[in-house]
Structures are given as structure tokens and as C-alpha cells.
Design a protein around this nucleic acid. Structure first.
Lengths: 202, 202
DNA sequence: GTCTATACGAAGATAGAC
DNA sequence: GTCTATCTTCGTATAGAC
């Protein structure tokens, strides 16, 4: 097989296994087995595990950028685009309830390992953060766009963590609805005093 | 040294190291070194790593219960008690920015390992969940107390994850303020129409 | 109860044949 | 480019002396 294709298979298998089992707990043997390669041949493509991790993060950065581009193109308004992000929790619900958020859990693990790649992994958060910030600016919230982006990113992380701990899809759906309601309330300059100031949480 | 005291030292060192480095990444040698014991002697106290993990979780459950009891006793109102919980993010800010939330990151790791102790670890969340739910009931929100408890637990998890990824204390402080504002808005039966329905997020 | 010494296996990494 | 075989390190776990 062509080297580039084998390399790509390795990266995709590692991407999945690092997510499902964690970085440390995934061995070269696991990945080689998933791809159908011998352990020895592995080192023709990647010299070290850290080099492989680097390739996996690069791959995830690319996939994430592509996804954001699709969301940008497929939605009409900034609010709809932000809803695409919120909806990730629903689309990936099954995997999130089993393994948490791929970005959050990787960053957590690398932070504890004090791994050199931890800052590159955090770049994955930055892609979402800046894209969301961009949407809030388009929504007319220039002044606090970054804080709003961090707020919704924070919520998605919290939902993912508790979803993995409780395996409760109703919790996920409920919090997604809360996020939608919160988002609707972020439109600037609303008509004053004509809304219920205490919308029910649930 | 008396066996019980040595055992207790081991559990406390393991508690700290499992938090700072993760469960898998912490070896018996690390713990033995931290306590000042030989690796061999270790097995007199704990036969396997899983047995040690079980003791660490038991220890954390005990510590958490004690903390909740103190919060219960030291605050006058349910709202103040819930603020004690929110304030954990500030009190433990330095450690959280370095290692995330001890409960969330442990549950995440054990979920990926599909470890038999993962449900026991989730009991740590349950302690907070039920205590918070209890406070919301006292606040007069019987109908949605559990959902409100899960909501604030979710926020604390999201803040901890992003705090660890960004090491940004201003983000933490900002989101803690948001949580306080949210909490203040949860008092039941507010005077209608006399508040700003769109309090600034930041 | 604590120690030293050691068995055993798993995982990262290398060498060299094909 | 892929294989088998092997090296090395490290971590779990055991044996037995003190």
C-alpha cells in the first residue's frame, strides 16, 4: 500500500482509539491491530508515540476547521450557526455519553501528563472559541463576543462531562434546550419588559 | 508504624497523585516514593491497584460528605449554601487550572478505561447532585430541583475543563459571577416585570 | 510491618530479512 | 513498505529475610 494511505489509516485509527480509550491507555499494538499492521511496521510511519499524537491533533484540527466551514456555509444566520454547534451534543450524543467530549478529555489527560502537546490540543478549543466569537460579533454582540463564546463552550463541556458520568440522554436534551433558550435571549436590544424575566429552566 | 496510619498515608498520597497525574499514569513506585515506603511493602497494604482506587474513592466520598456537612452548618440560607459550592471554583482555582476537577477528570478517565469502579466514582457527583437538589427544594423549587442541581453541576464541570485548558483565572471569575447571577434569578415568585430581563452576561 | 530481590508481562522502540 | 525477532524499560506483583 502507498505510504501516505497507510499513514492516514493509522492516524484515523489512533484518533478513534485515543478518544475511546485515552492516549496513555492506547498502545501501538492496539492501533496496529485496528489497522491490520504489524507492530514493527508501525515505526516506518511514526517514530514515537508523541509524533503520532501530533499527527492526530493535526488531523483533528483539519476535521474541525472543515466542519466549521460547512456550518458557516449551510446556515443563514449567526444564530443558526451557533445552533449547529449546540446541536453537536445531540448529533454525537451516543459517543459523548460513552467517552465524553474528544477535545475536553484529551486536554484534561494531556494537562495531567504535563505533555508537550497539551497546548496544541487546546488549539482545538480555540478553533471553536474564535468561530463562535465571530458569530456573536455578527449577532451584534461585539463588546462581549469572546465571553459569550467561552460561555457556550463551557456549557458544552459541562454537559459532555455529566453525560459521560450519568449516561442520561434526557439530561443532555434538557440542557441543549436550555442552551437554545439562552442563545435566543442573547439577541441584542430586545423589546423591553414584554418577556417573562424568569423563563422556566426546564 | 501502625498499619492503619501507613494505609491512610498511602490513600492520601494516591488521592493526590491520581488527581494530579491521572490514575493510569500514577505507578505504585510514585505513591511508595511519595509516602517513603518501599515498593515491596506496598503490597502488604494493598493487593492490587484497583483495590487502592477503591480506597481512594471511599476516602473522597468521606471527605466530600464532610465538606457538605460543613457547608450545611456554616450557611444560613439555601442560597448561601449553593454559593459555597460555586465558590469551590475560586477556592481551588489554582489546582483546577492545573488539573481540572478531581471528580470530572476521574470519571472521564475511568469511563474510557471502562473500569469497574467508574460507577462508584460517579457517586461523587451524586453527593453534590443530591445535596444541591436538597438546597433548591429548600429554596422553594421542588418541581425542578434536580434539574437545577444538574445545571449548576454542569456549569462547574464546564468551567473546570476550560480553566485547565486555558489557565485563565479571569474566565473562571467571570463565570463564577455568571453563576451567582443565575442563582439569584432562581428565587421563586419574583416580582414580575420589574427587573431587566437581559442582565449583561459579563 | 518493612525491607531487598526478583519474577513476569506489557509497551515503546530497534534491527535486519524479504 | 511490510514482516519477524528482539531489545529495553517500566510497572504490577510475589518471595522471603529481618
Amino acid at each position: 500500500m502507498v505510504a501516505a494511505a497507510t499513514r492516514q489509516q493509522i492516524v484515523e485509527a489512533a484518533d478513534r482509539l485515543f478518544y475511546e480509550r485515552g492516549f496513555e491507555a492506547t498502545s501501538f499494538a492496539d492501533i496496529a491491530g485496528a489497522v491490520g499492521l504489524s507492530r514493527g511496521n508501525f515505526y516506518y510511519h511514526f517514530k514515537t508515540k508523541d509524533e503520532l499524537l501530533d499527527a492526530v491533533i493535526t488531523h483533528r484540527l483539519f476535521k474541525t476547521k472543515s466542519m466549521l466551514d460547512v456550518w458557516e456555509a449551510n446556515a443563514e444566520t449567526p444564530e443558526e450557526r451557533i445552533l449547529s454547534f449546540v446541536n453537536l451534543l445531540v448529533v454525537n450524543q451516543t459517543k459523548i455519553m460513552a467517552y465524553g467530549c474528544p477535545v475536553g478529555t484529551l486536554c484534561n489527560e494531556l494537562a495531567k501528563l504535563d505533555h508537550t502537546a497539551k497546548d496544541r490540543a487546546a488549539e482545538l478549543f480555540n478553533l471553536f472559541r474564535h468561530w463562535l466569537s465571530h458569530q456573536f460579533i455578527a449577532l451584534g454582540r461585539e463588546a462581549d463576543a469572546d465571553a459569550l463564546a467561552m460561555h457556550i463552550l463551557m456549557r458544552s463541556q459541562g454537559v459532555a462531562t455529566l453525560a459521560a458520568a450519568y449516561h442520561d440522554q434526557f439530561f443532555v436534551q434538557n440542557e441543549v434546550e436550555n442552551m437554545c433558550a439562552w442563545l435566543a435571549a442573547q439577541r441584542p436590544e430586545p423589546p423591553a419588559l414584554c418577556r417573562n424575566p424568569f423563563p422556566p429552566l426546564v
